[in-house]
Design a protein around this nucleic acid. Structure first.
Lengths: 365, 365
DNA sequence: ATTGTATACATGTACGTACAAGTGCTATAA
DNA sequence: TTATAGCACTTGTACGTACATGTATACAAT
């Protein structure tokens, strides 16, 4: 007396589909004939035909007149668009063109087209882009988190990506909630530690820090800076550490440093968030008559070349740019091809390499 | 006794589909009921249902239980992928990141995703990319021709784009066979003429030229240089004009200029294909002890900033970069939306603007 | 050995009937 | 006035029959 509310044809259709999806019926296999199925399921041939016609329109089977009905070769090309997206905070500035170039080359070799997107470091825009990309049915995604130190408001969207089996790879940082997802990052803690150690080795006594507060990289560089100080027995002084956000980035770092200097702080070195900030600070300090590196040493990140200041080369941590992009692309391709296992933690950390410029003075004498 | 080989249900299906496609049945309209159609076409209701079920699976109609069957809102998103491609010779170098940025911003605003591709200035690769993009069913294409002065081997592919109604916009140059297609170019003839005139006005007597021979821009700049000379009564001397190809670009321009200088040519100014070439020549000449601009003046194109030579600013013709990209994107969007008429000649030329640097000496004294 | 043909069996088309179930309107009862 | 029961009409499910047409094969005729 079981009350089956499903129509008869639906039951047959569902059984067959499940058999195909579970591999019990293999591609190329012949399905039992309509009359056989009708007898087996105790329904009319007409009802069997209804079930089969649905499966045929969905692409599971093909009927061949006079021969029988066969399970179709699973056509993955319908699902695979061979498009992948690269979502970065910026496109045309800084290291990004060459980062994207590295990804492009690798992905292109593997036959993927690259859709570029930029978030301008806005989580809201990131959300909009993710939704759009999910609708576009891409094969995979390389994404640089926006404001990664802030808990992501887009976790549901990343879950959706998981649901739809769209693999993604984080670069430069991850979100605190998504640390177990595949990502490729620089060893930012190690990098900042190396730079701090470098300044200490050169005899610096009072080393300031300027870090970004709303992304993971900034937080880690901050941590590395602290570790560098404390492991040498120096005390961490929050009064000479400036933290800025994306919105402040054009004035706050410089303003804070100038404030210290004008208030008489005896800073002899600054570990900066990146080379761009370092060059800006250099320009501002020189403007105040402070010599770099004779009075204040500067370090940065990303070995950036500056067009308008070629006598100063900031001592920095190398960013491998194209190679970094290539690494990310390779990891994504592995995920697309299911080479690496399902959802295991796949983090690849690029070790930090010091590049010595002429922005740090030797104060041991 | 007409022999109709088409099944009855097929006739009904075909009629309805054509009515929908021709707009006789509008989206939202109610289709006659199954019984009405059966009577009208003198077939059983069962046969009518077969016809309707096919149309439903194809997305033309929707049946609503108890209410009727309705013509579906035409789902254009099936055809429109909202993807457009930007195909340039390079991606990460020179002016291209900012050019692409300009296109990206405009296309993004209009809801299009941007697929980037680069040809490395190889017509063969361009062909491969075009074929791939046609298969990908993109909505439109912005393309910088590769070796545009050589007749394109890919004309059939551009014809295919026309067939499939995929609009495309050329930037920087067109192919000789495709000059009537929409394109956005710099006024290269005018630009070279302005630069030549500038040197003449400053009292230069023997002005050399270094141009690319395998792209349209190079050929036009070459022409503008000639016009600039002859319109001032000066003679064009092929002995002090170097033409190079993409493959030669890294050594030939510099080598030719050095050959002239070493053979005792009394050159006092050079109109260069672009700033990159100009800076390379500047570095090579300085290496030989020749002063810029005191001994030789240099001009270029594209107002490029050079990281490693900040005391020299080449006098150049401005390239609007983002604005140029934006213009191209707007033209493409017009073509996609059929705002501008079918295949009319839509060429937009960006006028040349001189930017005076410090690479040209005043020799009037 | 090749060709043709009969046959069995597959799917395809087309007719019929009956009843289930959702929708929208109207006439009727509370 | 409001709720609802009934009715007409819609699509949805399900059964039945019949014959058309394509495919593969066994077997006979050439």
């Amino acid at each position: 007396m079981k009350e089956e509310r499903k129509p008869k044809y639906y039951v047959l259709m569902d059984n067959l589909r499940k058999d195909i999806e579970r591999g019990i019926i293999q591609p190329g296999d012949k399905i039992e004939s309509e009359n056989q199925l009708a007898e087996k399921y105790k329904m009319s041939r007409h009802t069997v035909r209804k079930a089969l016609s649905i499966l045929e329109s969905e692409g599971y089977i093909v009927a061949e007149h006079g021969r029988g009905t066969f399970c179709k070769e699973r056509d993955m090309s319908i699902k695979s668009t061979k498009n992948v997206a690269v979502v970065t905070t910026y496109i045309s500035d800084y290291i990004f063109p060459r980062l994207i170039q590295g990804m492009y080359q690798t992905l292109d070799e593997e036959g993927y087209s690259v859709i570029i997107k930029n978030t301008g470091n806005s989580p809201k825009l990131e959300g909009k882009i993710l939704q759009e990309l999910i609708d576009k049915n891409i094969d995979g995604l390389i994404i640089e988190p926006s404001k990664s130190e802030i808990y992501s408001e887009n976790v549901e969207l990343y879950k959706k990506l998981d649901e739809y089996r769209i693999p993604y790879v984080f670069i430069h940082a991850t979100y605190p909630q998504l640390e177990d997802k595949p990502h490729i990052v620089m060893d930012d803690i190690g990098g900042a530690k190396i730079l701090t150690q470098h300044l200490i080795d050169l005899g610096h006594k009072r080393i300031a820090g300027v870090f970004k507060a709303d992304d993971n990289q900034g937080a880690e560089r901050h941590r590395g800076y602290i570790e560098g100080l404390t492991s040498n027995g120096m005390t961490y002084d929050p009064n000479i550490v400036a933290l800025f956000h994306t919105e402040d980035k054009d004035y706050k770092p410089v303003a804070e440093v100038l404030k210290w200097v004008k208030s008489g702080e005896k800073i002899d070195g600054i570990v900066c968030y990146n080379d761009q900030i370092a060059y800006e600070i250099a320009a501002a300090l020189r403007n105040e008559g402070i010599r770099i590196p004779e009075d204040v040493s500067l370090t940065g990140f990303d070995n950036l070349a500056m067009p308008w200041m070629n006598d100063l080369r900031i001592t920095t941590i190398a960013h491998p740019r194209e190679h970094f992009g290539e690494k990310a692309a390779r990891l994504l391709i592995e995920k697309i091809n299911h080479v690496s296992d399902a959802d295991s933690k796949i983090a690849r950390v690029v070790e930090s390499k010091l590049i010595v410029g002429n922005s740090c003075a030797d104060r041991r004498g």
